[in-house]
């Protein structure tokens, strides 16, 4: 098997661009939320400073091997998801390491970080972390079901498991997007999307007021910085998967930025309007509203 080695530096370049875009986008969204509350908000470069500071803290404490690996797993979940999915359609440079069955791998990576975090936070021994983890896993599992159904529906529709081919099939005008050719799958997936972005109404996992930020309660210094790095990469990587599967992918970086921003804003807009669900409410919500849509999508295809 011949492998084009130049793809590795190209994939790292993608990672670099997405990392910076993610940091700026997170700050921009915090700023938008602040403006909604008539505040000035954080400076747009605040996330960079926070990162440097956390990497620059002098002391850190460990609770064991899994505690180390938790943030590492989390970050590799985000990076892996990004690396194995083509970012820019039609560009050899930014096709990353995508291959024929990458859709299944992407599904796996979406869940990977949460599991790693569960092991790491579990070892930190903090009761709030344990509460947060149990909430998080039950909620993510419920949210994952409609997404998985939607993905299978899309895979059946295009008769392929390759993200690149799915994107290619959607080219040539907006009406070719999955959004219009398979609206039920997109609806189910977008509802599940709300659940996995850690924004209201589904942010009871990190609930800052009652269980001080849940799973990462014990994380600090470089551990926290690794998780912040992932916080910049993972949501963007996830949005890239959604963009590729449902919204026709992107053919250039400007188009990429606009589409990712708009898809991301869906969860933000829902978040500023609706109050928080409890876990059993959100699980029920996913099973009642999102899951049937996914089943319908499968049946229609």
């Amino acid at each position: 098997m011949d492998f084009d080695w130049i793809r590795i530096p190209y994939a790292l370049l993608t990672l670099f661009i997405v990392f910076n875009y993610g940091l700026l986008l997170n700050a921009l969204i915090a700023k938008i939320a602040a403006r909604v509350g008539r505040r000035h908000g954080i400076p747009i470069w605040q996330n960079y400073i926070d990162l440097i500071k956390n990497y620059g803290l002098r002391s850190s404490i460990t609770h064991g091997a899994m505690y180390y690996l938790g943030p590492v797993f989390r970050l590799s979940g985000g990076v892996g998801l990004l690396l194995f999915v083509p970012t820019i359609h039609g560009s050899l440079m930014f096709a990353n390491l995508s291959f024929a069955g990458d859709l299944i791998l992407a599904l796996y990576f979406v869940f990977f970080g949460t599991l790693g975090m569960a092991l790491g936070a579990g070892e930190s021994g903090h009761p709030h972390a344990a509460i947060g983890i149990s909430r998080g896993l039950s909620q993510v599992t419920a949210a994952e079901l409609p997404f998985a159904l939607a993905v299978f529906s899309v895979a059946l529709q295009y008769q392929t498991l390759s993200v690149s081919e799915i994107v290619a099939a959607q080219q040539g005008g907006m009406l070719n997007w999955t959004l219009f050719t398979n609206p039920f799958a997109v609806a189910a997936a977008m509802l599940s999307f709300l659940g996995s972005m850690m924004r209201p109404p589904f942010d009871v996992v990190i609930a800052p007021q009652e269980i001080p930020i849940g799973p990462p309660t014990e994380y600090h210094s470089s551990y926290l910085a690794l998780m912040q790095t992932n916080r910049a990469i993972f949501p963007i990587a996830k949005v890239v998967v959604y963009m590729n599967l449902f919204f026709g992918g992107a053919t250039s970086w400007p188009l990429f930025c606009v589409k990712v921003f708009l898809i991301y804003m869906v969860s933000v807009l829902v978040g500023v309007v609706f109050p928080r669900f409890r876990v059993e409410q959100s699980v029920r919500w996913f099973l009642v509203w999102a899951l049937p849509l996914g089943v319908v999508a499968i049946l229609l295809v």
């Binding site: 602040a34 505040r39 000035h40 908000g41 954080i42 400076p43 605040q46 800052p208 007021q209 930020i213």
Partner: peptide, 11 residues
């Protein structure tokens, strides 16, 4: 609005 000076609260 202390956030504009890079000041945040952590729980």
């Amino acid at each position: 609005d202390a956030y504009r000076y890079g000041i945040q609260w952590r729980p």
